[in-house]
């Protein structure tokens, strides 16, 4: 086998040309591309690491915030619960007070109603009694009730203890008032007036009608009051009725 030196020279040139061309068209672009890709990947990784760190920071921040929110929520719920409890207590207290008030008011109303009823009863009874008395007086003694009352008043006036008679006799104010529940006839008025003048001649007697006296007569003189009527009896009757009503209530 021979070595053809001309071919050898040509092959050397061929090889160098091939090397230059491959360097131009193969190695350099490939190496550049791979380096660029490597750089790109590095960049991406760097970015990904950066993003990951950022995301982790965010996660941590959000977790912290969530915990804060949870704590706040718990706090708010506790607070709301406490407030609700306070409110409930206040409402209960208020309701209790209202109930108490209602009860008190109801009791007062009841008592007032009782009192009204008693007063009405008292008036009715007095009227009935007066009517009864009047009729009885008229039937039995042929006198009116007013006459009876005046008689009784005059008798009591006559039987007045000495110190009280003395008070009347020395009264400074001459204007005396005689009050009755029923209107008096003039004859009766004159009898009362003459009897009073006998005690104190300066007395100027004025007659008045007062329904609350019911049955009886009252004398006002010099700021003092003497009265004879059914009030004492009626008061006793009233207390008895009250007891009876209280028993019925309970």
């Amino acid at each position: 086998m021979q070595v053809d030196w001309l071919t050898v020279a040509a092959q050397i040139v061929n090889f160098l040309i091939l090397a230059a061309l491959l360097k131009r068209f193969l190695y350099r672009p490939i190496v550049t591309t791979m380096a660029a890709r490597q750089h790109y990947i590095d960049q991406q990784l760097q970015e990904a690491r950066h993003l990951k760190a950022q995301a982790e920071r965010l996660i941590a921040a959000y977790r912290r915030r969530l915990e804060d929110l949870e704590a706040e929520r718990r706090h708010l719920i506790d607070q709301a619960r406490r407030e609700a409890e306070t409110e409930r207590q206040a409402l209960l207290e208020k309701a209790r007070i209202e109930v108490e008030e209602k009860r008190r008011q109801w009791r007062e109303d009841l008592a007032r109603e009782q009192a009204d009823l008693l007063r009405d009863l008292k008036l009715l009874l007095a009227e009935q009694l007066v009517e009864l008395g009047r009729r009885a007086f008229r039937d039995l003694a042929g006198r009116s009730l007013e006459e009876g009352i005046v008689e009784a008043f005059l008798e009591r006036l006559a039987a007045l203890p000495e110190d009280q008679r003395h008070l009347l006799a020395r009264a400074r104010d001459p204007e005396w008032t005689v009050a009755t529940a029923l209107p008096l006839e003039d004859s009766l008025r004159r009898r009362i007036e003459s009897r009073l003048k006998r005690i104190n001649p300066r007395a100027q007697v004025r007659f008045e009608q007062r329904e609350e006296l019911i049955l009886g007569i009252a004398l006002e003189a010099d700021g003092r009051l003497w009265q004879w009527n059914l009030a004492a009896y009626l008061d006793e009757l009233e207390s008895r009725l009250r007891q009876t009503l209280a028993r019925g209530e309970s």
């Binding site: 086998m1 070595v3 053809d4 071919t7 050898v8 061929n14």
Partner: peptide, 9 residues
Amino acid sequence: ASLSTTTAL
């Protein structure tokens, strides 16, 4: 396969 080529290389 040529000795010229191997020599050149």
